[in-house]
Amino acid sequence: MATTKHDHHAHQPGDHDQAEILDLDAEVLAEHIASVIAWLPVESGPRQVVDLGCGTGAGTFALLDRFPEARVTAVDSSAEHLRRLREKADEAGVADRVHAVQVDLDAAWPDLGEPDLVWASASLHHLADPGRALRQVHDALAPGGLLAVVELAGFPRFLPADAPEDRPGVEERCHAEIDRRAAEHMPHRGADWGPKLTAAGFTVEGERTLTVHIEHSRSEAVGRYALNGLRRVRGSVADALSAEDRAALDRLLDTDGPHSILRRDDLAVRTERTVWAARRP
Rank of each mutant, 00 (worst) to 15 (best):
G257I: 14
D23G: 07
E27A: 09
S121Y: 02
L227P: 10
V42R: 02
R208H: 05
L262M: 15
E215M: 05
G194E: 12
D25S: 13
A10P: 05
A142N: 09
L85R: 03
A100M: 04
S217E: 06
D7E: 15
G113P: 12
H188K: 03
D51Q: 06
A38G: 08
Q12H: 09
R84P: 03
A70S: 07
C174F: 15
F61R: 02
V36I: 11
D106W: 11
Q18A: 11
V72A: 02
P168W: 11
L29S: 09
V36T: 08
D106H: 10
H185R: 11
E31F: 08
A70T: 01
T3E: 13
E91Q: 09
P195Q: 05
P187D: 08
A238L: 04
H99F: 07
F61K: 00
P110R: 06
A248M: 15
L152C: 06
P13T: 10
T3S: 03
R224H: 13
I33P: 08
A79R: 03
R157G: 13
R47E: 14
R47I: 07
L262C: 12
R173G: 03
G201W: 01
D250V: 15
S123D: 02
I21C: 00
R83G: 00
L227H: 09
T255F: 13
H6T: 13
H188C: 02
A95H: 02
A70G: 00
D192K: 04
G144Y: 05
A89F: 01
L262G: 12
L230P: 13
R208F: 01
R173V: 04
F158D: 14
G235A: 07
L124W: 11
Q136K: 15
A100T: 10
A30K: 13
V137R: 08
R47Q: 12
A226Y: 11
A248N: 15
H16F: 03
V237Y: 14
T198D: 04
W276M: 10
T73V: 06
E184R: 07
N228T: 05
G57M: 00
D23P: 08
G59D: 11
P187G: 02
I261H: 13
P156A: 09
D111F: 10
A191H: 06
D139C: 01
A278E: 11
